[in-house]
């Protein structure tokens, strides 16, 4: 294809400092982009409404690390899902995130899509979001002028595709507190087929197993509300219970009060409600099996 009328500027900084300077100068004129798996789709879908410039974060090696810190695992914003899926640190501490990463698109997408991009995009169907919600992650934002701030994941979204990210800030990393011993975490997703699919409903559960009972239960759902949501009342009901698939049906009434799914192209509200309980059943069944294995 020949050249467009007005050439779109494209920044490829090599350091975070450089990137933050461009971000501060361009503000909302330059759209940050990492692997491009969402941004390049928007560029095609709405060619007349694209930004004046793109700010590529792909070349920032410092944002690609997955590192163990004193009390958390730090995941750089542009770590790809392929990286996440292979990371022994995550396999050991956040297996649910590894599972979620494997559910993102297929190989081509996993090699490019980044966890930061997934979160900043803000789609309630973002595969990594429920896991970050239950960890719960701290979102690290940085700007040139105002330095770094840490926002709890639960406070990051303010509405459908709305976040607290300011137009001079970049999301640089996530800090996932190291889970206490005996913690189990799992991720479940139902889409329209087994791979390369957008979720109709997904869920993540993280809890500590003390003997055969659940403690510190965290349960989050995606694609059932304008943003990814935690289910505090359902969590409270699960607290202290022994995991079993029957438990899912026992709490299904509360669960269904806490989610607000809609009918859309990909599914129906009624099905999402049904599957939301089904996914919890799967998670609790798996959790019970893990507990059984640990006890044996």
């Amino acid at each position: 294809m020949a050249r467009s009328l007005a050439e779109i500027r494209f920044y490829t900084p090599k350091t975070l400092e450089e990137a933050l300077a461009i971000r501060a100068a361009e503000r909302s004129d330059a759209m940050p982009m990492a692997g491009g798996t969402d941004v390049m789709v928007w560029r095609r879908a709405a060619p007349d409404e694209g930004p004046a410039a793109y700010l590529s974060l792909w070349g920032l090696r410092e944002l690609k690390q997955i590192t163990k810190r004193q009390s958390c695992i730090e995941i750089g914003a542009t770590a790809t899902f392929a990286q996440l899926a292979r990371s022994p640190l995550l396999r050991e501490n956040f297996p649910a995130l590894v599972e979620a990463a494997r559910h993102v698109g297929a190989a081509q997408i996993q090699n490019r899509a980044t966890i930061g991009g997934n979160v900043v995009n803000g789609s309630p169907a973002g595969d990594s979001l429920p896991v970050l919600a239950v960890a719960p992650a701290m979102v690290v934002l940085t700007s040139k002028g105002r330095g770094t701030r840490r926002v709890p994941f639960g406070a990051f979204y303010t509405g459908y595709r709305q976040t607290v990210l300011e137009d001079d800030e970049l999301l640089v990393s996530f800090e996932l507190p190291l889970p206490p011993p005996g913690t189990w975490s799992g991720f479940e997703k139902v889409g329209s087929r087994r791979a390369q699919t957008i979720s109709k409903v997904m869920a993540a559960l993280q809890a500590r197993l003390d003997g055969d009972t659940l403690h510190g239960v965290a349960l989050a759902y995606g694609s059932v509300a304008p943003t990814v949501i935690r289910l505090p009342r359902t969590e409270a009901l699960l607290e202290g219970c022994s995991p079993s698939e029957r438990l899912a049906d026992d709490v299904s009434g509360t669960l269904n009060q806490e989610i607000a799914p809609i009918d859309d192209l990909r599914s129906t509200a009624a099905y999402r409600r049904f599957a939301a309980v089904g996914l919890l059943r799967r998670l609790l069944r798996r959790c019970a099996a893990a507990q059984g294995r640990a006890a044996a």
Partner: peptide
């Protein structure tokens, strides 16, 4: 047509 693309017009992949 509301789903004129492979994202929402779903055909089987190799794992289906």
């Amino acid at each position: 047509m509301l789903n004129p693309g492979f994202t929402n017009y779903v055909i089987p992949t190799s794992v289906d």
